[in-house]
Design a protein around this nucleic acid. Structure first.
Lengths: 212, 212
DNA sequence: GTTTGATTCAAACAATCGTTTTAAACAGAT
DNA sequence: ATCTGTTTAAAACGATTGTTTGAATCAAAC
């Protein structure tokens, strides 16, 4: 990964977040990155491949962390079920901490991911399956284990509701300050994680009880 | 509202849902609607104004229903607090029933709204505030009432988590079938409403307890 | 039957899109 | 110093974008 490629990826992240994948032009990105227009096609092939690289660049370390934490937790408990809240936290924390870190000071990538996953027939659709398939399968099992169920419909709905909440809260994050009438601090990662984890855990438990 | 305008709005809804606001071109929309390219600019001024009309066309009746149901419920209870689950259902049901009705057979508008709300600096941003301000204010009060709190931070986080879940589940709806390994029926509106309402209610209660 | 105003049409507008091309600049190895 | 392979530069490519134009079409009013 050369210096130019990284400059492009990080500029693309910002531009994609501002205007979406279709809205951000190659010229927007290259001029923001301070490189030539042809650089994207030279280094990444085409725009779609750049999109893929931008996502992969951010999301792969996050998913590796998630899987590692899940394995650690299982090892600690000698394979016994992990409390639901802890599983949810393992899903949420690496994502939010990474995306709200110093390097991307306006949560650009949050919006990039959210928009990408929302676009149908998008280049991200296939990538999403590639990148998330493994992590979804692992956490489906873990959550079923925590809830003491193997009913695929219940687990499926739970996974769906979890990813929906995560996706939504990523997209809506900027609006949190408005919703709370200025009382919520957008930079308060711990506060956000605590609320989202508590919310999802409570919701999942309710759904689990309903389907029992 | 002439016949042509309605044809355009309903075709635009489909095209926007498929490719997003930037992705759907004027020519895509007009040819799908069976009208001339110039019709959009003639009837709506420009593309941005069309976007606004598409959203307003769907969302206003939904919000009127929500407000009516809330008032009815308060009248029935002579102004006493409404159970949280009922408030959540009043938020969810009119939206999901309208958006999953026969007229838009592939939940197009779900995706339109979700994408629109996710776009920053978009034409929907201001519209969102205009259209949703009243309904948000009313339901903030109702939820605070149900939870027995007036803490703006708690209520704000709750509203944020509710809208996040709704937004996310709208965007992810197509993926529900995958998540549940084919066991969830995408057409099962009642099932979806039941799960989402239960999930959100459980989540909000947990957050409320946490902040007590 | 003619006129009027509203609507539709094909065609063209300038601007921008993603991409390609060709040459220049650069590095390190021989 | 010359060659080699990689990276950058400016310019242009055809296609498509949102929008505008001016004539054609239509229904209703007089």
């Amino acid at each position: 990964m050369t210096e130019t490629q990284i400059k492009i990826i990080e500029a693309a992240e910002v531009e994609f977040a501002k205007n979406g994948f279709n809205g951000a032009s190659i010229r927007d990105i290259t001029s923001a990155a301070g490189v030539n227009v042809a650089a994207i096609n030279y280094h990444f092939g085409n725009k779609d491949d750049l999109v893929r690289e931008v996502v992969r660049y951010r999301i792969e370390p996050i998913n590796l962390t998630r899987i590692q934490l899940l394995q650690d937790e299982y090892a600690k408990r000698k394979g016994n079920a992990i409390p639901l809240k802890r599983v949810i936290e393992i899903i949420i924390r690496p994502l939010f901490e990474a995306l709200m870190s110093e390097s991307c000071d306006d949560f650009h990538f949050m919006k990039v991911m959210a928009k990408g996953l929302g676009e149908e027939n998008s280049v991200l659709q296939s990538l999403h399956d590639d990148i998330l398939k493994d992590v979804i399968s692992r956490f489906s099992k873990a959550i079923g284990h925590s809830l003491g169920t193997e009913d695929p419909r219940t687990i499926g709905y739970c996974m769906h509701l979890i990813s929906s909440s995560v996706l939504g809260s990523m997209m809506q994050h900027k609006r949190l300050k408005l919703s709370s009438q200025g009382t919520a601090d957008l930079e308060d990662v711990e506060g956000l994680i605590a609320h989202v984890v508590t919310f999802i855990t409570g919701g999942i438990k309710a759904v689990s009880v309903m389907n029992r």
